[in-house]
Simulated assay, not measured.
Amino acid sequence: MSALVDDVLRAHGGLERWRSFRTIQATLAQGGALWGLKGKAGVLDQTSVTVATDRQWASHAPFGVIAARSEFTGRRIALLDPSGAVIDASDHPRASFAGHTLETEWNDIQLAFFAGCAMWTYLNTPFVLAWDGVVAEDAGAWEENGETWRKIGVHYPDSLEVFSKAQAIYVGPDGLVRRLDYDVEIAGNTPGAHYVDNYADVSGIRIPTRRRIFPRLPDGTSLSEPLVVSIELSDITLR
Rank of each mutant, 00 (worst) to 15 (best):
H155K: 06
A26Y: 04
V5P: 12
R206T: 02
G42V: 08
V51P: 04
V162D: 15
A11E: 09
R10N: 15
P226I: 04
C117F: 00
A85M: 13
E16Y: 07
N107I: 06
T101P: 00
W149E: 05
T221E: 09
A33P: 00
W120H: 15
K151C: 02
D108E: 15
A58W: 10
R179K: 03
L79I: 03
A29K: 14
K40Y: 06
N107S: 12
V154S: 04
N124P: 07
T101E: 06
G192S: 14
I24M: 07
A52I: 04
G13D: 05
V8Y: 04
R210A: 07
W57A: 14
T209W: 01
S59F: 12
D108T: 11
W106D: 07
I236A: 06
E144Y: 01
T27R: 14
E143S: 08
Q167M: 02
Q46R: 15
Q110F: 08
D81P: 07
S96A: 13
L238V: 00
L233M: 12
A52Q: 08
E144P: 06
E137R: 10
F97G: 08
L129G: 06
G42D: 11
G39V: 13
K151P: 00
I152Q: 03
A78K: 03
A187L: 13
A85S: 15
L217E: 12
R76G: 00
G146A: 10
D197Q: 02
S224F: 05
A95H: 02
V8F: 04
V51L: 09
L123N: 12
A115N: 10
I186H: 01
V43W: 11
C117M: 07
Y122P: 00
D54N: 15
V128Y: 08
L180E: 00
A58L: 00
K38Q: 11
V65R: 06
S59C: 08
D181H: 09
V49F: 09
F127V: 12
V43P: 08
S59E: 08
R206C: 00
W142F: 04
G133T: 05
W131E: 13
Q30C: 00
P173H: 13
P173G: 15
G14Y: 14
A78E: 12
D174L: 03
H12T: 09
P126D: 14
R94S: 02
G188P: 04
G14C: 03
P191W: 02
G39Y: 14
K38V: 05
Q56K: 07
A58Q: 05
L160T: 06
T27Q: 10
I87L: 06
S234V: 01
A68V: 00
A41Y: 03
D88R: 15
D197R: 12
L223Q: 11
T50P: 01
T50I: 01
P173K: 08
D219E: 11
R179W: 01
Y199V: 01
V49T: 03
K38Y: 09
F127Q: 07
A29L: 12
L80F: 12
F21S: 01
Q46H: 15
A3N: 12
P215W: 13
N198I: 00
R179Y: 00
Y199I: 05
D219V: 03
G42I: 06
